[in-house]
């Protein structure tokens, strides 16, 4: 089971990204973005199509987007992507949106790992990584 997390790069220093990825080896992949508002529906769908079994987006706390309302736009995009997934019979739970309210990125990553545990891998992915 592979999870991809797209997040605003302000939320996590690069060295911590490397540390987190090595902790959750092969089951977690972190993609820093200049702002969560840069994440498009196509990024979320493509991630599920070619790579991950679940995708999460972690945004800055409401009202703290450096680009004013990027973290509001991404909410709409995640909603739309979830609707599209439902329309083809894929569980919308595979897409999550979390706000970094407590500024504790590691806790949010744990939440992603926990809440996606019940999901099975998408049938077209052939992952060899250990499921955690």
């Amino acid at each position: 089971m592979r999870r991809a997390i797209f997040y605003c790069q302000r939320l996590l220093p690069e060295r911590e990204r490397i540390l987190l990825e090595s902790t959750y080896k092969d089951t977690l992949f972190l993609f820093p973005m200049p702002c969560s508002g840069r994440i498009q529906v196509t990024h979320l769908l493509k991630a599920l199509e070619v790579h991950s079994d679940a995708v999460a987006v972690i945004t800055c706390p409401l009202g703290q987007c450096r680009y004013q309302d990027g973290n509001l736009w991404v909410t709409k995009r995640v909603d739309r992507a979830r609707t599209l997934l439902s329309s083809i019979g894929i569980e919308p739970e595979r897409l999550m949106l979390l706000r970094n309210s407590a500024l504790d990125f590691n806790a949010l990553v744990k939440e992603v790992m926990e809440s996606t545990k019940a999901l099975t891998g998408l049938n077209w992915h052939n992952h060899t990584g250990e499921d955690r």
Partner: peptide
Amino acid sequence: EKETNELASLLRMAALK
């Protein structure tokens, strides 16, 4: 282009599923 990429991805996933 955005919508075309989205739909292509969605259709590929539906077909794979």
